[in-house]
Amino acid sequence: MTLSYLVRRLGSIVVTMLLVSFVVFAITQILPGNAATMILGEFATAEAIENLSRQLGLDAPWYVQYLRWLGGVMSGDWGMSMTLSRPVLPEVLAALGRSGVLAGLSLAVVTAIAVPLGVWAAVRQGRPADMAIGGFSYLGISLPEFVTATLLLVFLVRPEIGIFPAGGYQPLAAGLGTFLIHLALPVTALAIVLTAHIVRQTRSEMVDVLQAEFVRTATLKGLPRRTVLFKHALRNALLPTVTVLALDVGYLIGGVLVVEDIFAYPGLGRLLMFAMQNRDLPMLQAGTLVMAAVYAMTNLASDLVYGVLDRRIQHA
């Protein structure tokens, strides 16, 4: 991997993010009613709205507004939230941190469960264990997060059980137990779909790799089964899984939107849903931009990890 490859990839991310910022700005510009109407309310006089519009610079042509907004984003001034009357950037960053906890924990759980299950299914190919895992993963990828989340609420948040809270968030400072119990259900809801994906991916790659010559050689050399499976086969099978995991971050972001909304988890997803319901433009623009940036960065990271894991790839 050369430096020039890295620079080129970062450059293309900058171009993509500029285009995304334009798309997001364009979409929010089509929203009916401008910021001035939203601040002053429906019953404001036309004159007052016009004055405030001029003050806010809403009478400028769209490209001037776009450049002004973009300049603000670059210099750290992301505007004021219209509903919260607070600067957008700190709110978005705090929410992003909490979403990061949720998404990171989900990914960790998924990797810890899905990869061994996928290996197991591949080893038992065509036998009952494989069938059961296959059936589960079909069910997993076919249930939208809102269904799993609601089912979890139905079955696990009954007063008789009384272990899991219906939602909310507690910081780590409130104690590890409290922190984790609040994360348990949202993480489960997010993990089911992704686990199903990764199990299928790992299984199908493992089935391929297990038929390869080098695995047979390793077995014939008399190496222990475990060494063959995990040292020889899995390392090669995991390569494509890394890419799928990065693509799944896109699904994860969608899932985060829904799951945070259902479990009242104060992350970026919930903030965005709130911004959409209240037509809070600065918040909406900032949240979407941040999510797209996270997605773009994960894709870059996965390409780089791929390069590190597979020495045959030479990024020129």
Binding site: T16, M17, I30, M273, T288
Partner: peptide, 22 residues
């Protein structure tokens, strides 16, 4: 294709939500 890349860079459920909100 650059424009398509930009559209693909927005996670799809978020993109759908934005459009329906508008």
């Amino acid at each position: 294709m650059r424009i398509m890349d930009a559209l693909l860079a927005i996670p799809s459920l978020l993109f759908s939500l934005l459009i329906v909100t508008v």
